[in-house]
Write a protein that binds this DNA or RNA. Structure first.
Lengths: 223, 223
DNA sequence: CACACTTTGAGAACGCGTGCACAAGCTCGG
DNA sequence: CCGAGCTTGTGCACGCGTTCTCAAAGTGTG
């Protein structure tokens, strides 16, 4: 019923399972019955040894001399990742980014369904995005509970992030994907993953500079 | 002139420098002259030992018994991250996400300026987003060169990602931030960082499940 | 000037993740 | 039924990153 906790799966492996999942989905559509670790590695952009070790954490699902059964492996990974279920999701903060996420049709195609949009701006409340109406943040607790939401997406300005995170947790949310450019803490037992666009660009900038400000000629700051 | 290559800075440290930068910016606005590793750690959401070791890679910028001079440290980190320069940025793929990124006013506030928007859809070309007009992908090479762009943001559908990445690299781009849900390779000497929303949600889902499908009651898949 | 207190900087130990290398196990052709 | 050829699963060594710990180096007070 629930996923079997065979052994502890390393974090790094968990982070790669979605890559394998996607690669297998694409392979499955091409009516391929089995796949080798080598081929899967190529599709997922990692090396074959890593694929084998990662998959071995889930169990011995391969056949020596043959490879892995695509359908079966796909099923096992889905189960492990919880993709055999529907996860209703709420987005808090319906600005540029929140709106884009609300319309985004690429959330793994299946499994994650945005059911609730929440914002603090009264002018936005009631406004429809796609087929959902924006709900006031005053109703966060009620709506989150009514929709049985376990996963929340935080797309508010930095200043509001911690407060909204606290409210989400209080309403029963135990997983948060945080797009707000702010450090934000959650209690034990709640997961939080951060995605920060500015930080990503700054990291790129660092390496860009180290390559001798490579490619284009950099401009000194004028302002 | 260029950043001093004192010692090799570990990747993990580079990824945290932006956190320190942001924390110091906020601290600086409050007119605080010096800051301890303990306090900085708290603001950045890491531990103090890590802060000290990270900063020691940049040089010995602290004073024992006192802490770090906020202004000076800020300056050193900016320089290391290349934030004393302007980086013109191009966004390719002006869908939901691309549009949101184009309007996003939070790219580190300074340093990264979106100057070029590119899309393959003829119906979109010429259309204005903010104060920029969308350019055809046929003109990618020309526009990227004209604007001296070193950093590109990829927000196309998965199918187009590799092709666009290749074009960007051919046009002289050496850093790519990839939002497309696809494995995508670039030659040696080019940096690429991936941000995949579906993958982040799947990772959250994994841990959610392991906590006993915690919080809300999960729903079995009906479709 | 000496001493108590604070805080940095780095040496050392540890743990996690990666990648190599190879035995074990499966298939298939003859 | 045997042997050649694949491919998995895993033991092992190595390297990176984190954390503990403490000497070194500063400040401030009496």
């Amino acid at each position: 019923m629930t996923a079997s906790p065979r052994r502890r799966i390393p974090e790094a492996t968990v982070a790669r399972l979605p890559l394998y999942y996607r690669a297998l989905m694409e392979t499955g559509e091409r009516q391929v019955a089995t796949i080798s670790s080598e081929r899967l590695a190529e599709l997922a952009g990692v090396n074959a040894a890593k694929v084998r070790k990662d998959l071995s954490y889930l169990g011995s699902y391969g056949t020596r001399g043959v490879g892995y059964d695509v359908e079966y492996l796909l099923h096992e990974i889905s189960r492990e990742l919880g993709l055999t279920r529907d996860w209703p999701v709420a987005i808090v903060g319906i600005g540029n980014l929140g709106r884009a996420l609300a319309n985004y049709r690429g959330f793994g195609a299946r499994g994650f369904r945005v059911e609730v949009l929440i914002d603090a701006d009264p002018a936005l409340v009631g406004h429809r995005i796609g087929d959902l109406a924006v709900v006031s943040i005053d109703d966060l607790d009620r709506v989150v509970r009514e929709h049985n939401i376990a996963i929340g997406i935080l797309a508010t300005p930095a200043a509001a992030a911690q407060d909204v995170a606290d409210r989400l947790v209080a309403a029963g949310v135990t997983s948060i994907l945080n797009f707000a450019p702010a450090v934000c803490s959650v209690p034990e037992g709640v997961s939080m993953r951060k995605v920060d666009l500015a930080i990503e660009l700054q990291i790129l900038s660092f390496y860009q500079l180290r390559r001798g400000a490579g490619g284009a000629t950099p401009r000194e700051r004028t302002g």
